[in-house]
């Protein structure tokens, strides 16, 4: 028998993680939606972001989540740099070349991490936020509550930017028709660069929040990539809200699978549910027919 309190606790845990996953996946969704490039290195940006947060936390002896103040703007600029150096040159290229480039970028990041920090996991030894609060049998991590809260605020801010600002209009127009957008006076290359910067900055934010309780190793990017792809594939067509719903579903499935089946099967549970969904909705949750 499943204990209802344990199930509830898992669902709540899953929802909190789902918020964080949505935040990370939104970066992937933005880049894909605007420039039609699947960034296979997306999860590896999270991994590098996690190491950066860890290094800064160690250096300044603050909780890793606090380092987002530095890592988010830093990764925004790094994202723009990588866009200019690696992505822009292959914009018009064959999909296979684009895939090779972003997959390669991910491996470069992994190798750098392996060379610099080796395979042993790293975590901040004195996290301030890694304690729990309990009420009525339910126990939640304060670090995850804060991560979830900051994630949802960030998702809202991106949603606001996209729907209510002039730059957001340029992003959506470019995403709808990149050939015609310049005829409006929109500088498409600039939209691409900033979008890539924002997408990268979101990975740094997600990573810093995660490091409040988590640990990183050179392969951390794989699970973030896998989760982000499912989330975007299921919900990407629904914009920020689609990514949010789909991230929450993935977070809950992962938590339940991890507790009631086995932690090592958590990604398999998510993917099996995804395959199942595709039987009924081949174009994801938010396709308009």
């Amino acid at each position: 028998m499943m204990d209802p309190i344990l199930v509830t606790n898992n669902v709540l845990d899953g929802l909190l993680m789902g918020l964080l996953y949505s935040l990370v996946a939104l970066g992937l969704a933005l880049i894909f939606g605007v420039m039609d490039i699947i960034n296979f290195a997306h999860g590896d940006f999270v991994m590098i972001g996690a190491y950066t947060a860890w290094l800064l936390a160690m250096a300044f002896w603050v909780d890793p989540s606090v380092t987002a103040i530095i890592t988010v703007p830093l990764f925004f600029i790094i994202g723009i740099g990588i866009y200019k150096l690696v992505i822009e040159p292959v914009l018009g290229a064959e999909p296979l070349i684009q895939i090779a480039v972003t997959v390669g970028l991910g491996y470069v990041f992994q190798n750098i991490a392996l060379a610099l920090w080796h395979a042993e996991p790293k975590s901040f030894p004195a996290p301030w936020l890694n304690f729990s609060i309990s009420a009525g049998g339910i126990t939640l991590s304060v670090a995850k509550l804060i991560a979830g809260g900051i994630s949802i605020i960030s998702l809202y801010l991106i949603h606001y930017m996209l729907t209510k600002t002039k730059f957001g209009l340029a992003v959506r127009a470019t995403s709808a028709n990149r050939e015609v957008a310049p005829l409006m006076g929109i500088n498409v290359k600039k939209v691409y660069a900033i979008t890539f910067g924002i997408g990268t900055a979101l990975t740094a934010l997600g990573a810093a929040l995660y490091m409040s309780w988590g640990q990183t190793n050179p392969y951390l990017g794989q699970s973030f990539s896998l989760l982000s792809w499912v989330i975007v594939a299921m919900g990407g067509l629904g914009g920020v809200i689609g990514v949010l719903y789909s991230g929450l579903i993935v977070g809950v499935l992962e938590a339940l699978g991890s507790t009631f089946i086995t932690p090592s099967a958590r990604l398999a549970v998510v993917y099996l549910a995804f395959f199942l969904l595709l039987w009924f909705r081949p174009r994801g949750l938010f396709a308009r027919r």
């Binding site: 209009l169 340029a170 957008a181």
Partner: peptide
């Protein structure tokens, strides 16, 4: 442009705003 090049997912109003970018 040839073929109109409307921004399909945007509203009519948003298309007009984009025109005034």
């Amino acid at each position: 442009p040839e073929g109109r090049g409307i921004f399909n997912p945007l509203t009519v109003y948003e298309n007009l705003l984009a025109g005034a970018y």
